[in-house]
Write a protein that binds this DNA or RNA. Sequence first.
DNA 1: CTGAAAGCGCTAACAT
DNA 2: ATGTTAGCGCTTTCAG
Lengths: 334, 334
Amino acid sequence: MATMSDIAKAIGVSKTTVTNALTGKSNVSEATRKRILQYAHEMGYRPNELARSLAQGKTFTIGLILPSIAHPFYPELADAIENCARLSEYQTVLCNTHSISALGGQQMDRLVSRWVDGCIIMERSMDLADIIRHFQQKVPIVLCDWQEQQTPPEIPLARGDFFRAGALAARHLLEYGHQRVAVIVDEPGQILRLQGFCSVFAEAGITVSREMMQQGYSTSESGYHAAQILLTLPERPTAIFATTDLMAIGAMEAIIDEGLRVPQDISIIGLDDLMVSSLLRPGLTSVAIPKDQLARNTMELLLAQINEDQNGSVTRLVEPYLVLRQSTTFPRNP
Amino acid sequence: MATMSDIAKAIGVSKTTVTNALTGKSNVSEATRKRILQYAHEMGYRPNELARSLAQGKTFTIGLILPSIAHPFYPELADAIENCARLSEYQTVLCNTHSISALGGQQMDRLVSRWVDGCIIMERSMDLADIIRHFQQKVPIVLCDWQEQQTPPEIPLARGDFFRAGALAARHLLEYGHQRVAVIVDEPGQILRLQGFCSVFAEAGITVSREMMQQGYSTSESGYHAAQILLTLPERPTAIFATTDLMAIGAMEAIIDEGLRVPQDISIIGLDDLMVSSLLRPGLTSVAIPKDQLARNTMELLLAQINEDQNGSVTRLVEPYLVLRQSTTFPRNP
DNA sequence: CTGAAAGCGCTAACAT
DNA sequence: ATGTTAGCGCTTTCAG
């Protein structure tokens, strides 16, 4: 592989001139510039980004740390983030931590050793203590999709407005006339969604009783199990809000297995709008957090830190919206 | 951030000694080693991987190039690959090309400029011409999940044994007693799957007629459309094999929309075993390519090139297996 | 066992 | 407009 020095020697100029010709930052006579560019092209010269990074103290690389890219929530978001990053000339190093703190710590250390320009860290992928340590050592970091309560306010954060997301779900069910509704929620992490949901029903004078709230763990299995319990209640809910789509999907399966129909017997609404939710029959009605907006906000916060633009606000909320499919309808006996 | 020189100065030894102490490659007296390690630890010293890479000509980074991580086939595979890479101390740079050749070319160039130690390239993510060019310039490359016919034999390739995968699907349907079967296939790319399928039926004396084969494009929509056509045939198939799960899912929807039942009226079998296929009702029976095995084989081929182990065979086939769910059963009128 | 010196390929002041 | 020099932080001969 040809290097800059090779070119310099071959043409009979200094390295500086070659840099200048190649980057176009300083003045070089048209004649020599042409000779240099042409020769570089002939040799198939590619600058060594490693050397460049070392000299400039900047790698144009970011780290993306998440629990597992195989979890259906992340692929779309990761795609959007990688796209945003690329638009700003950044490349993305993917790190799965499998929610193992030690692994997350290692991966992060490694990224820092590589001098990544910044890191995007998804919820549950790392210990906050490790994150804070790195942040204090001036590593640009943005938290993405974390619940606000858990995170220190000084670290920039981008996430969906989960309170409003919960409220949206509630409003949708209310509009259909549902009064006896249940919630499957992964507390405490997803409490905002629950609060948003309950607040709307409270406004309407309806209290969601404690037995209508079931604990889930964001998996379809836990949703299945939670729904089973709800179905045994003397007064069955006419609709269920699950705070993640996976739990909603599990709940839907439980209902069908019980011989009931969705949405005729029970309506189901989720939150996430996973790609799979559109493939189900019936399609799952869900509250979506626009993933590309989330990605864009995340990258903006990261770039602001990298470029040391001191902009005040460090939390970005992304507006959720309702995706109407076939899993919700009017209650049969309102 | 403390550097090696800082440590050397502080302790009063040379950089060489520090390196030796830190890497443990050469001999250092126990006393000085301890002092160095301790001081390094106190300072929170982290080696600069960039400098190290530049000096060693090795980055411990690989590129993973794929059409889009948002496509449901890739996340599990990407997870597995990242895991394998990490076990060998490699980090993974994620590149989505959106099947745009220019973009793929750029991304690849960028990776090479970064001196990645090797690249894994998924089907449809890049132009073969670009790949071949880089391969000839000694960039370690492994193709993953490409159809064999399309790729030059000299470039290492790992993929599922699609012929056998098709055969497995056929054997499954045959065992259930299906005789009138249809195929939805994304030709020409997925012709091996079709051939495997047809060969088994041929052995059983059954020819899959041309009208029982519908062209799809690996999307659920195309599967939906193809199934619609099949349903209009005078003699409806009792089972459909779709060469990708997404097409199978689309086909399933078409059948349900037509007022028929899966599997009672028509059985459906897919190929890929996507995570979503297990979430559907009925669950989709599918032929799986074990993703972690595929990942492992891919990494092995890549590491072999990076380490210049000259092992002969360059194509690795991974054995598919059947995942039985609820979308297949006996034909009602065999 | 330890150190001096050269070099990885590039950038960036500072001359000329 | 071009060249000289120093340096990014580490590894790696080669001497001592």
